[in-house]
């Protein structure tokens, strides 16, 4: 089995869930090796090993944090050049897809973005993508070079496969371009006790019908009763009612939870593109003709300010 490089997504060594999904997928197509860039590798070793990393390549260089994308691409391309992997998996995040893009050009390799599944195929890894606002499923594979695949969060359920990884420190020779774009400052997003949007099993979202930032508490209370993440439509975000990091849609986050509850969201294409692969969809909307109702497994035509508090009370009663 060939070596599969997995680019680790982490914050100072705290490994984020998509990486565990990537390691799980990597085991289907080869032997996973983690590529850890930046500070905190020691803190990450145990977790990466628990999810099956056989090796960890560590590039502990300040450039990775101080400059945008290129140092990461340099590091990943250099490790790939040295170990000649069977495939490279990276998270479908802004940084991940751009690192993948640059490494693809550099290695002369095909690139597939936003895979929602990866399996072993006759011609190497086969991917599944959800395209055209999730109206089509596309199966594809890379035909040239080392397949580079960016994988969306929630593409797999992380499964443990404990290994004791060999840790290898790699000294990267950075390109002249590496220091081209300086990251002048970095403001971490506000921490919340709620699950992350991309990782949550249940998402409760509010839209134009919520009608004000102060009213989002109605959405949040139902989310908390269900242990869900909170989402928002572009209309609600553009109006400044909820932070952009919570935007569900084509240009925000694309989610695929077990349950998606849309409240006060009409269901424009921009929103549908971000949620219509959810397993179960529920909507509450005043307008019985809202296009969102075409997608639902269950819908309530009504005032969200009456339906949601009643729902919340009922959930708490039944717990």
């Amino acid at each position: 089995m060939g070596e599969i490089l997995v680019l680790v997504d982490h914050v100072d060594g705290a490994v984020r869930k998509p990486t565990l999904e990537l390691l799980t997928l990597a085991r289907r197509i080869g032997e996973p090796s983690a590529v850890f860039l930046g500070k905190g590798a020691d803190a990450a070793t145990e977790t990466l090993g628990r999810y099956g990393a056989q090796k960890i390549y560590v590039v502990d260089a300040a450039e990775v944090d101080e400059y945008l994308v290129v140092p990461k691409a340099d590091a990943l391309a250099q490790v790939a050049g040295a170990v000649n992997p069977a495939a490279i998996l990276v998270p479908s995040s802004p940084d991940g897809r751009e690192v993948g893009a640059r490494v693809a050009v550099r290695l002369g390799s095909g690139l597939i973005t936003d895979a929602v599944d990866v399996v072993a195929g006759e011609n190497g890894p086969e991917t599944e993508q959800s395209v055209f606002a999730a109206t089509y499923q596309v199966r594809a594979h890379v035909t040239k070079g080392t397949p580079i695949i960016t994988v969306k969060p929630n593409a797999a359920t992380p499964e443990e496969a404990p290994a004791t990884p060999a840790v290898e420190s790699v000294a990267v020779k950075f390109s002249a371009a590496a220091t081209g774009t300086k990251v002048v400052s970095r403001a971490p997003r506000e921490k919340s006790d709620r699950p992350e949007l991309t990782e949550a099993d249940i998402v409760v979202s509010g839209g134009r019908g919520v009608n004000g930032a102060e009213n989002f508490v109605v959405i949040e209370r139902v989310a908390d009763a269900l242990g869900a993440a909170v989402g928002a439509s572009r209309a609600a975000v553009d109006a400044g009612w909820y932070p952009h990091s919570h935007q569900v849609g084509q240009t925000g986050t694309q989610v695929s939870p077990q349950l998606y509850i849309a409240a006060g969201i009409s269901g424009a294409i921009q929103h549908r593109a971000g949620m219509q692969t959810s397993k179960t969809i529920v909507a509450i909307n005043k307008d019985e003709d809202a296009p969102i109702f075409d997608l639902v497994d269950y819908g309530v035509v009504g005032d969200l300010f009456k339906v949601l508090p009643q729902l919340e009370e009922e959930i708490n009663k039944r717990k």
Partner: peptide
């Protein structure tokens, strides 16, 4: 450098109960 093996229209979601 990559090829599409199959493209299938996702079955339209069947509209469930709306009350």
């Amino acid at each position: 450098w990559s090829t599409v093996d199959a493209a299938t229209a996702r079955p339209a979601r069947t509209k469930g109960e709306v009350v």
